[in-house]
Design a binder for these strands. Structure first.
Lengths: 126, 126
DNA sequence: ACAAGACATCGATGAATGTCGAATCAAAGG
DNA sequence: CCTTTGATTCGACATTCATCGATGTCTTGT
């Protein structure tokens, strides 16, 4: 009931205005403090080996989604897996949905695109 | 343990074989433990607001390089700036060179490309 | 109603991290 | 040689983080 996650600002807008990433490419101009704060949250979310394996497992799964039971074999305990999935969800990289007994996690494509946009840097055109 | 950094594996090959990134795209298949360990180091390096501002400042600077004195205005002390630049260098994202009084840091383009490659994910083709 | 399975939350703990001031090193100039 | 300026290293500290076992919640099947 405690909707703690509602207080977290979404890193990627999912409603109208979607497709407008949080920040320009890293090479375009120096980031402001706010932009850096926002973008760093996403990078930090993927800056852990366990989270990266979980994310990769889900992303490469059929349909871009997977149930927890299918990706829990990453060498850490079940509560730890749950903890990391929560972190990825809070960073806006995943969304979850319960279907019967199982909970399915799904990749948030816009977040993936936003991070790719930060690193896509063709400065030759300028 | 004097040469601590020498024990760190390079994240990006800079000799022959350059252009072969450390890992496939995140969406291609589940990462192995080793791949996750390698890729997570790069993401973690950019997972700090100060480091992200420093990196962005250098990347957007003319010539893709900048001296420390030009990018030290990020709200933290100068030793802290030096500390973060060292971290970025250890992650393979920057290289440094002393020219007279000043030290210049430069973006490592292959590292930027490698990270972009991880996030470049057109799963629609499958 | 009860038991079992899947997943989340809680509380604790050891390790890693970001930050600073002081000290140190390196180059340039008087 | 000594001082000044730019940058790194050192030592210390507070905070954050990853991890675990125990417990709680939700759903299904008996």
């Amino acid at each position: 009931m405690s909707n703690t996650e509602a207080s977290l600002l979404p890193l990627i807008e999912s409603g109208p205005g979607a497709g407008t990433p949080c920040c320009p490419p890293l090479t375009e101009r120096p980031f402001t403090a706010d932009e850096a704060e926002t973008a760093a949250r996403m990078f930090k979310a993927l800056g852990d080996p366990v989270r990266l394996r979980l994310f990769s497992s889900i992303a490469s799964h059929a349909g871009g989604e997977a149930c927890v039971c299918d990706i829990s074999d990453v060498g850490v305990s079940q509560p730890t897996v749950s903890h990391h999935l929560k972190k990825l969800k809070e960073a806006g990289l995943l969304s979850s949905e319960r279907r019967g007994t199982w909970v399915y996690y799904r990749i948030e494509p816009s977040a993936l695109a936003a991070m790719g946009g930060l690193l896509t840097a063709p400065p030759a055109s300028a």
